[in-house]
Nucleic acid binder design. Structure first.
Lengths: 71, 71
DNA sequence: ACTTAATGTCAAGTATATTTGTCATTTTGA
DNA sequence: TCAAAATGACAAATATACTTGACATTAAGT
C-alpha cells in the first residue's frame, strides 16, 4: 500500500531554504511529522496544512490538492 | 473562544441540495462530524476535507482557505 | 396545531494524528 | 576521506479527531 509522496510540499520547503527541522519549528510540530507528510503516508489535520502553506507562501491547493480528470 | 463558522462549506452543501446527513453518508463520516466542521469548532483531517470538496465539486481553497492580507 | 426532517449539543468510547526518543542511512561541505 | 547535518524509520506514549447514542430545538410541510 505505497502512497504518493508529496513532492510539491518538499519542493516548496527546499525553495525557501528550510530543512524539515526548520519547517517543523516554524509550524510548531515535530520533525517527524513534517517527514511523514512529505512521505505521503500520512493524513495531517487541516489546521496544520494551513499553517504550513502560510509559512511557505503557498495555498492549500498549491500543496495538497490533486486535480482529477472527472471534476 | 468562539471560532468562525465555515459558511462556504454550508453554502456549497445546500447548493447541492444535501442535508448534513446526506453529505455525511457520501463522505462516510457521522452527521455530527459534518455539523462540527460547519460550526467551525473543529480541525478535520486533510483526507476528509479533500473527500468533502470532491463530493461538492469544489477545491480545498474554495472551502477551507482564507486569504490573508499579507500574503 | 401536528408531524417529520434537519440541526445543535453533550458525554463516553474508539481510532488515529502527533510526540518523544533513539538509531541507521544518506547528503553535504571542508 | 571525514564530520556534521539532514533525513528515514521504528516503537511506545499522548493528544485529539471521529463515532455512537441519545435528547432538545428549530425549520418545513400538511
Amino acid at each position: 500500500m505505497e502512497k504518493k509522496k508529496n513532492i510539491k510540499l518538499k519542493l516548496a520547503r527546499v525553495e525557501k531554504g528550510y530543512s524539515q527541522q526548520d519547517l517543523a519549528e516554524l509550524a510548531e510540530v515535530s520533525r517527524q511529522t513534517i517527514g511523514l507528510i512529505e512521505s505521503g503516508n500520512y493524513n495531517p489535520t487541516l489546521n496544520l496544512c494551513i499553517k504550513i502553506a502560510r509559512i511557505l507562501g503557498k495555498t492549500l491547493n498549491d500543496l495538497f490538492w490533486e486535480e482529477t480528470n472527472e471534476q
